[in-house]
């Protein structure tokens, strides 16, 4: 099943959506609207047997020249039988960025979605356990957003020190 086939079938199935396709080096990409993401991904999973979710992550396009949306989330899929890969990408915007959770399709999405939530604050509807994963629960910022400074807001030194004579 080549990229051309996938393109053809996807376009036939989702005529109304005008999906965008692009290829760069060996990466084949489909850019889809977030509202139909779940349908498209489950169609890809059942029809083309993309049974492994290799990667799921996001980027913040705040300072990127020419970007039209704030966040992009990508799903890198792999067909384990024949090793074919496809990247599905979707774009989101700021107030209340949210996406459907892919936990029902791929269990592997569990932690990856939690990480995206932790780093970018994108919420996933239907995720069974959406908490912060890497940062402490009490942390308030989303550190990989572009408006968060590299050295943080001073959180890293917000602890008491232990003096030698005390302990």
């Amino acid at each position: 099943m080549s990229f051309a086939d996938i393109k053809e079938k996807l376009t036939a199935k989702f005529e109304k959506l005008n999906l965008e396709y692009s290829s760069f080096r060996d990466n084949d990409r489909v850019i889809v609207p977030p509202s139909d993401l779940f349908e498209i991904l489950s169609f890809l999973k059942t029809t083309f047997c993309f049974d492994m979710l290799i990667d799921l992550s996001a980027a913040d396009y705040l300072h990127l020249q020419g970007a039209t949306h704030r966040y992009g989330v990508w799903y890198a899929l792999l067909n384990v039988e024949n090793g074919e890969r496809l990247i599905v990408k979707t774009h989101l915007d700021d107030p209340d960025p949210r996406l459907p959770s892919m936990y029902d399709l791929w269990k592997g999405a569990d932690w990856m979605e939690r990480e995206v939530y932790d780093m970018y604050g994108i919420e996933f509807d239907g995720h069974p356990d959406l908490r912060r994963i890497l940062l402490p629960d009490e942390f308030v910022a989303f550190p990989l957003r572009k408006d968060y400074p590299l050295r943080g807001m001073g959180e890293r030194h917000n602890f008491q020190s232990v003096i030698r004579s005390e302990a």
Partner: peptide
């Protein structure tokens, strides 16, 4: 001005960079 995902087989599994 593009995006790329590339991976290699690290000892632990697929180590990819996007």
């Amino acid at each position: 001005k593009e995006e790329i995902y590339a991976a290699t087989e690290s000892p632990n599994g697929e180590l990819g960079f996007y």
